[in-house]
Structure formats: C-alpha cells, structure tokens
Design a protein around this nucleic acid. Sequence first.
DNA 1: TAAAAAAGTTAGTTATGACTAACAAATTAA
DNA 2: TTAATTTGTTAGTCATAACTAACTTTTTTA
Lengths: 228, 228
Amino acid sequence: MTNKLNLNNLTKSEEDYLKALFQLLIEDSSVKVGNNQLADYLKVSPASTNNMIKKLKAKNYVVSEKYGKLDLTEEGKSIAVRLIRKHRLWETFLCNYLNFTWDEVHEVAEQLEHIKSKKLINELDRFMDFPEKDPHGEMIPNADGEYSILPKITLSSLSDGDVCQLVAVDDGSVNFLKYVSEIGLALSSEIKVLEVREFDKSIRIQFDNTIETVTRKFADNVFVKKVV
Amino acid sequence: MTNKLNLNNLTKSEEDYLKALFQLLIEDSSVKVGNNQLADYLKVSPASTNNMIKKLKAKNYVVSEKYGKLDLTEEGKSIAVRLIRKHRLWETFLCNYLNFTWDEVHEVAEQLEHIKSKKLINELDRFMDFPEKDPHGEMIPNADGEYSILPKITLSSLSDGDVCQLVAVDDGSVNFLKYVSEIGLALSSEIKVLEVREFDKSIRIQFDNTIETVTRKFADNVFVKKVV
DNA sequence: TAAAAAAGTTAGTTATGACTAACAAATTAA
DNA sequence: TTAATTTGTTAGTCATAACTAACTTTTTTA
C-alpha cells in the first residue's frame, strides 16, 4: 500500500495539468478532451502538454492511447479534487476574512492551492466552519474529496419569462467577474428573463429593479437555478 | 524609476538565497559571511551557491568581490525583510488561528512566504490586528519593512543566579522546538539559572517549579531578557 | 614561510518544463 | 475518396537550479 506516500510528490506543473484536465472533463462531461485542447486551456504549447501527459501516464494519473483522447485515473481525479478543495477554501478565506473581491481571489488562490500541508487546509476549513460553497457559488469538496456537483444551468439556456436565482459564476476571467459585480449581480440575485433577442442572442434581464442587456457570451458564464 | 516592477520577479530559489544571506548577516553581525557558509545553511553545494550569487550580483541584490565575503545591497535587504515579514505573519496565523504548534509552523510558513500578493499579506496583518511578534517571539516587520531587532541574549551567556525571561527561540529546528515545549518552557517563562557546570557547560535551570538541566547547545537557541 | 587545510570557483552533467519546427495520424470537407 | 485541415507526436533547444569533480586562491598551522 504505497497509497499516501506518492500523493505529495507532485510538482506544481503536474498539479496544474491534472486540475486542468479534470475541469475540462467535467465541464463538458460528454465530450472527450484532447491534447491540444488541454494545451489551449493551460496556455502552453501542444508539445509541452504531450510531454507532461507522458509523465502523468507513467505515474498512473492519466490514461490515453496514442492519438486518443485523455482521461484521468481514480488517483488522478482524487488529486484534482483535492486541488479544487484547496482552491475554493482559499478563495472563501480571501473573500470572507481578507476583504478580497470576487475578481481578485482567483490569481492568489492559484498560488495557495499548491501549498502542501494537510493540516493547513483542514484547519482552515474548520476555522471557517466548513463552508459549503466558495464565493463564486461553487461547491467545496470535503476532506474526503466528496462534493455534490451543482446542476449547471446557464442563464443563456433560459427563455422569455423565466425567473431564476444566480447560483454560481465561472471564475475563469477577471474581466467577466468585474463586469458581474459592476452591474450589481451577486450570488442569490433573483433574475427575470425579459426577452431573448433572436438577432444576436442577447438577453434582457431584470434584477433588483435594474434592467440590463447582456450578451450570449456573458450569459454562458452565469449559472442559475430556475425558480419559475 | 523601475523600483516596484522587478520586486516580484524573483524565483523561489532567489528568494531563499536572499533570505538566508540576510539571516546569516544579522545573526552574527560582526562576522562576514562566505560562500560555503551560505551553502551549508541552505543545504546545497558550494557550486550551487556560487552560481546563484553570480545571478544575484547581476541583479544588484548582492555585492562581493572574487574570493571575498558576501553582502546584501539595500534592495537585497528589503526583499529579505519582506520575506521575513511574510514568514512571521503566516507563522502567527497558523499558531493563533489554525491550531498549529510551535514546531509545526516553520515548514508550512516556508512555503507560504513565497506567495506573491501584497494585498494578501497586508490584509492578513490587518486581520490579526497587526501583531508585533511571531509565535517564537521574533519581531514582525511592518508593511514598510521597519522592525526593531530584539537584543539577542542567549540563555547560555548567563551566569549562576541570573534570572531572565524567555523572549524568543530559534525556529530553525523542529526537534529543538518540540523539546522546548516538552519540558514546559514557553514565551515569557521566567527562568532562574541555578548553576552553569564547568565540565560540559550544561546549565541547571528552574522555571515554574520545574528544575531541568539543559545542554549548552540547547541554551544557545534560547533567547532571553535579563530580569535580575 | 612552506605545506596543509579550508574556502571559493569553474566546467560539465542532470532533471524539469517550457519552447519551435518538422512530421504523422485522424478527421472533415470538397 | 482524395485533399485539406486539424490534431497529435517527435526531435532538438533553452533556462533554471541542482549536482560532482577538478582546480585555484586564501587562510591556517606546523
């Protein structure tokens, strides 16, 4: 049972790749993930990705056949989930205790998630009284790596007259996050879809006595729960 | 004025070397620091140190002549102090909020001190209400890098009958720190020197109704303030 | 002060993880 | 179904930062 021993021996890069692959795999759970797609996501060259995938295959975190699509082993997934747990707990800490705003947390959490100390992250979790969601509304895995995935309905998938509640936002882009706060949207905001315009798929929405028109691209990054 | 720009462009290694050199320079402020000494301290080969010193000289953080002793420039010192500030603030956070013990904090703080975010560390400082000292009793530099150095009198420098108060301990060795807690010593403990034994320089001390004999090596790592 | 020891330097090697350029396989489109 | 495009792979290079081995300078001490 050399189970726990090799878990902490990963480099920052190896961790980044595993987490990225995990996120690509669940974001579009049906679609397969390829080498170049991963390279794009991580903003490195396909050659770099290919190289790293070889290493991760040798370490039994990734499986794939030559010229085939990529997948994670159970061990690979487990590492990725632990990284996501760390990332989201740190984001929560930064927002709730250190006055960080939505758009500021991601970059710092990207660094903090690589700190290696089980005690650190579990104590941080306890200190914050085991939060369920991070500041963007995403579920935080518990110490055993368990977490429920929230059904990701995008605002863009709704129709005229639908009423929904904002449950999460994609945390990938600083500019998007700034934009969300600027127009006054926040977690739990109740949003009414006034009109989906056929021409450019832009959406007219109402929330808190505000009426705004948002683009399709914007609405793709806003996750909601249907109310009506 | 390319002042603030290059400050964040240092690698983890470069930071480690600057901090190590700074600590060697103030620990024995009279004695000069050489290449091999720095290598010893960092547990790397003299060749590695030599190499890195070259790079740090090129970047104007270190000064030295060939075959001569090492010194830091003002900029080098400033970086080192900021690392020490981060290290000590994290140690304080870990001990005071996350249930870490004296001997557990150092290793994790060594990782955390390399996180690059001014806001993070300044907000952490504010969150803890600007602590003056870290858990080992060392002064924490403020956001401007200012801090008073506590006069470091070692327990080993005292004589029979002297009474002192423990103000700090060296945080370099986990085993030493465990030992200190185990025998019951803590910051502010009042210690009376009962006898310094000529034979092996071991010291018989009394504190809190406990009498213990400690070695010279142990006493070298305990910093005190004389009371009587 | 000359030999020995210690301290510092240089050259050459290794591993990690990026990169480009060239090429091969698979998929899509004409 | 062949040609074009996309995707994946390989080979070779570069930077960082460690290493050993060999060598030079400085310091110590006999």
